[in-house]
Simulated assay, not measured.
Amino acid sequence: MDQWEVHEGVPVMEASHLDRQCKGSSIVRVFRCALSYVLIFALAWVIIGLIAPREVDPDPEAVREYLSFWESFLSYLRTGVVMFLLIGAPTIVIVVVAGIFHRKMEPPIFRAVVTVLILMPAWFLLFSNTVQMLLLQVAAQVLFSTAVMPVPLIPKSESQRVPKG
């Protein structure tokens, strides 16, 4: 009961305990946000690997032969890992920084702004050899920012004291 005190007949949580609780929940929310983005990104690249055209065999002796389905699938997954470094990591940084500094925008406006911002790292997929890469990556970015991303990322502490129950 040391974290609670009675103020004007109402049990309230002490500010120091509330600060520790908010910091912990903020870190958990940021971690969950990043993890959910990684899962959506990975799912998008699995789908790309399944539906994109099979890749041409890179062996110079093979004349216009295509890789088997599984070899092509694994090739797309390897490409997905590289794309995570080029698209996914900057997206997570953008989302976390925007979430930390977001204070006055309404959630729908904030989601729209973040959607535009996180589409920027995917610009070079405009030059990819298959349209599936671009469309599915853009769909993953939009899905994350409009439906999955927690808003606000870092909850504001409404007051120093929170009534119990």
Rank of each mutant, 00 (worst) to 15 (best):
L35Y: 07
E71D: 11
A15E: 06
V113M: 06
V113A: 14
Q21W: 15
I48F: 10
V96W: 10
A34S: 08
F84S: 03
G9K: 08
V10C: 05
V93T: 06
C22T: 13
K23L: 15
V30I: 15
V12G: 05
V46F: 15
D57R: 01
G80R: 01
Q141I: 07
F144N: 04
L50Q: 07
P155Q: 13
L85C: 05
P107W: 01
W123A: 10
E14Y: 09
K104W: 15
L39M: 11
F31W: 13
I154V: 11
P58E: 08
A112G: 03
S26Y: 12
R103D: 13
P150W: 02
S145I: 04
V96R: 00
K164H: 12
C22I: 15
V28K: 01
R161M: 11
M83V: 03
L143Q: 06
I109P: 00
V28Q: 04
R78S: 10
F101Q: 07
F110G: 10
R103P: 07
A98F: 02
Y37H: 04
I154R: 03
W4G: 04
T91M: 00
T91V: 09
L126M: 12
I154L: 14
R20W: 15
A122M: 06
Q3H: 11
V82W: 00
V96P: 06
P155D: 14
E158P: 10
L134S: 12
P121A: 02
G80M: 06
R111C: 07
G80A: 03
L134T: 08
E55L: 15
V81Q: 01
D57F: 12
E71L: 05
S26F: 14
V46H: 13
G9M: 07
L119F: 05
F73M: 02
G80Y: 04
F41D: 05
T130Q: 01
P53A: 07
P150D: 09
V38Q: 11
V46N: 09
P58D: 09
F124N: 08
I100V: 15
A44G: 02
P11W: 09
A147M: 14
V95S: 01
F84L: 02
Q141C: 08
A140T: 12
P58S: 12
A52D: 09
W123N: 05
D59C: 15
V6F: 02
N129S: 12
V38A: 15
I109W: 08
I100F: 10
F31K: 04
A44F: 10
V28T: 14
M133Y: 10
F124H: 02
S145V: 08
S25W: 14
C22D: 13
K23N: 13
V56Q: 05
K156V: 14
L35R: 06
F84A: 00
P155T: 15
Q141M: 09
F73Q: 03
M105P: 13
L50I: 15
H7R: 07
E55S: 14
I51H: 01
S159P: 14
